[in-house]
């Protein structure tokens, strides 16, 4: 049977193409444009080739920020994913507690980033903050302004507070989709609590966990507002993540070329790591 090909159908894609062009491709191209040029001001630009890229890639400032970012994402994933699963497992599956828990869990997600930052900035202050003041009153030497370790702990706890709910809600959605018959069959089969988790709940949460890990990784790797509001990247450069460094370079120092090159490298790293995560988890999924 012969199919007649009608290429006019491609016009259907045109509106979408235009939309993507204006929302993503063209803005991205301006960054590409800056990344290969240099300027001495006065709106005069010179061709710089790949100089900015090699500069950024060989700068220890970039390496440090990248390492900090990887450490940050790694730690929050290690905390938020198990904690999220644990909380989701302990949430009620029916009854009056369900809406209460869901609303309670959603609250942190509803607060704008900079407000979260401000909350923790104030909360952790040693002079007026409930947390900082109490800790010091109890004899714990806590001060996120001076101590890099304390600054890290504050930023990490803040992120856990803000985003664990997302993992919880996604896992919970996976859990409630498990039919009762599975739990009943497990009882009949004499399965232990751990077996129920390992062979029923975890496999059913697999897909939503993949999404949760991807979202949390991308988000935490791009984190900007919250640490910026709390620590401003300090003390020193202790909490200067890639995005904070990028803004410093672009707007603080007005080094548009290096900043543009850095943006592109940053973007490619996120893309690459997300792809790796996704591929690894999908492959595991297929293997079962």
């Amino acid at each position: 049977m012969d199919k007649s090909w009608n290429n006019k159908a491609w016009f259907m894609v045109l509106p979408m193409l235009l939309l993507v062009a204006f929302s993503a491709v063209i803005p991205l191209m301006t960054v590409v444009n800056y990344s290969v040029q240099d300027t001495f001001g006065n709106n005069q630009f010179f061709w710089a080739g790949t100089a900015w890229f090699s500069d950024v890639l060989s700068s220890s400032r970039f390496h440090d920020a990248l390492l900090r970012n990887l450490a940050f994402s790694g730690i929050i994933l290690l905390i938020e994913v198990p904690l999220g699963i644990f909380i989701a497992l302990n949430m009620p599956r029916r009854g009056i507690g369900v809406p209460f828990c869901l609303v309670f869990m959603s609250l942190p997600l509803l607060i704008p980033w900079n407000v979260v930052g401000t909350i923790w900035q104030v909360f952790g202050r040693v002079d007026i903050g409930l947390l900082g003041y109490t800790l010091n009153g109890l004899g714990v030497d806590y001060n996120y302004v001076n101590d890099p370790f304390d600054a890290w702990v504050t930023v990490l706890v803040m992120d856990v507070w803000h985003w664990t709910s997302l993992v919880v809600l996604l896992c919970y959605a996976g859990l409630v989709s498990i039919p009762d018959a599975y739990y009943q069959a497990a009882k009949i089969d004499g399965a232990s609590r751990f077996s129920v988790f390992r062979y029923i709940q975890l496999p059913k949460m697999n897909r939503v966990l993949l999404i949760a890990v991807l979202l949390r990784f991308m988000d935490s790797f791009m984190i900007y507002t919250e640490p910026f509001v709390v620590t401003g990247g300090g003390p020193g450069n202790a909490t200067t993540f890639l995005s904070i460094d990028l803004v410093k370079t672009a707007i603080g120092q007005f080094d548009l070329g290096p900043a543009a090159a850095m943006s592109l490298i940053y973007f490619l790293i996120i893309l690459l790591l997300s792809w790796v995560f996704y591929t690894v988890m999908i492959t595991n999924d297929a293997k079962g």
Binding site: P179, A181, Y182, Q184, A185, I188, D189, G190, A191, S192, S195, Y199, I200, P203, K204, G288
Partner: peptide, 25 residues
Amino acid sequence: AQVFQFPVVYDTMTVADNLAFPLRN
């Protein structure tokens, strides 16, 4: 032993492990 209306299998196990599960437990 009880068999339900809709199939309940442990997805991540092999067929043989599924059958062995109640025994091993």
